[in-house]
Nucleic acid binder design. Sequence first.
DNA 1: TTGTATGCGTTATCAT
DNA 2: ATGATAACGCATACAA
Lengths: 329, 329
Amino acid sequence: MSEQKPVPTMKDVAREAGVALGTVSKVVNGLPVGEEYRVRVEKAIKELNYRVNSYAKGLRSNKTFLVAVIMPNLVNPFFIRLVNCINKALAMRSYRMLFYATDFDPQQEQEVVLLAEQQKVDGIICLSYNPNLKIPANIPLISIDRYFGALISCVSSDNYGGGRLAAEKLVENGCKNLAFLRIGSKLTNEPNKRKDGFISACEALDIPYTLKIVDDGTPYSAFEEFLQEHLHNGRLDFDGIFCVTDSLAYQIINSLKGMGLRVPEDVQIIGFDGSRHFGDMELYCSTIVQPVEEIAETCVSMILEKNLLQAPSLLCLPVSYAYGGTTWK
Amino acid sequence: MSEQKPVPTMKDVAREAGVALGTVSKVVNGLPVGEEYRVRVEKAIKELNYRVNSYAKGLRSNKTFLVAVIMPNLVNPFFIRLVNCINKALAMRSYRMLFYATDFDPQQEQEVVLLAEQQKVDGIICLSYNPNLKIPANIPLISIDRYFGALISCVSSDNYGGGRLAAEKLVENGCKNLAFLRIGSKLTNEPNKRKDGFISACEALDIPYTLKIVDDGTPYSAFEEFLQEHLHNGRLDFDGIFCVTDSLAYQIINSLKGMGLRVPEDVQIIGFDGSRHFGDMELYCSTIVQPVEEIAETCVSMILEKNLLQAPSLLCLPVSYAYGGTTWK
DNA sequence: TTGTATGCGTTATCAT
DNA sequence: ATGATAACGCATACAA
């Protein structure tokens, strides 16, 4: 078993190059230094295979090039897309992503924020379901989909506009009677506005609508019962359904098929998110697409911005409609 | 704008508690200390809301409680499941995950390994496609699905056994003529063994088989052409197809349906991975399930083990068959 | 058992 | 422009 050669430090480089420690530091950080010195230092760095110790650097400079990303999980496609895009946006700027999953647990969410603080990350991007989340004073934090008050910037899709767009598209496609189906947290958060937008469009267009809204944890069968209640002589009361997520839409479509109804011939369906089979193949359904890349870019560029304090407190990014086979077009 | 209160340090705690710096350190690290002192220190910690600076700690102790996870991306469901499970396994042990995506690019893979080394992570878990990856000497590294030689532990599914199992299951379900379809890297890696296991079972069972194997980057249409070539009078030459991934199986199933063939009546299909709709709903197809949780657990517990040197160089974890509607059972 | 002092590898402030 | 030196916050060997 060979002895592990100790990792070289700046001191070693300085000795090897025959210069002072400070000179090495300047070369490493691209500060002005005599040409001849620079060459010698760079040669020594290469020879020793020296690399900056990011922990020493972080300790000294209070800058870690680390950003904590806090999400409920890596199962929901929307969260996955977010994490993927945020990671790319960070990598492009030479930042690294420290990932924390919270499993929707408010207590874990709080713990993890504390952990991130302790880890001295340069920023936190967080999708939290904890309304009472205590936010660290010393670290910039950006929230996705949850408004924590004017002091914390929140980035989200234009959920209200998305709800409206869904209703409008269904009507454009000939629907005369709509339904909105939702399962989710009853805490106020941005995605809740999908309903409001939907209702607003229905009323503007003078289209009748029905709502079925249940709390997280409600078994899916609640929706099947709802559909059965509205099934008369093999026909459903509505001819257009807006589901709060693609995932719910997927289940609803299966249920409808099980009931002998055809999509989109008998009922048209629009979901929300833009999830795709295997992450990058076809859409599961016609849907309102969340601008995930833009959300990620926005979060990252804001979090790395110095003057976060004067940033807008709520930033809604435009959604778009995408045809996915469960509407006429 | 109020001044930011400076983050308290151990020194502040020591002063507040009226004890020496070393005592605080011991309390924080759970080392034996006089009861009365401990209480005083803990009180001061709470009052000042003190938390250890992980950068100072890491610098001093050469231990960061960070593990780098290197994956091609967060799009492929298998990678996502791995990252999710690894993250959980790490969190359970109070380690944090630093995530790096490489986009299958060998150069990025190499850079990212260097970055992780520089970040002083306690270990690296890596799914790489770079056969020449230069591996750091000072940091334990575990590879998933790629064998780098006896010195680097490699964890993977029992791909060979999985290939054999797929063939056996198809035959059990009545198939008389099989096909194996694969697209992927031509570099030797563990998943390549799926083919070998498949062939071995076909020969043992004396079942004829056809192979269609194309390199990464080949357009999918190559498979459609292959299917067309083997379609005569509306009947396919084979009645059972083993696809190298669920993702490919999904596409193949769509193609077959487009050709007017029924699954599983005319052709039975088995995939590989165990991907599910929306990450946790039904399977896409009957499939050989990779034991992702076990792979993750194994990687994490090995990487945190002191004596990685005497670990086995290749660890194959058992796969299982799961019915997903594209076979008879 | 508690306190003191040194050093981890770096940056930044000084004189030179 | 370069070189010496202090300080970042913590752990630990050593002295009390």
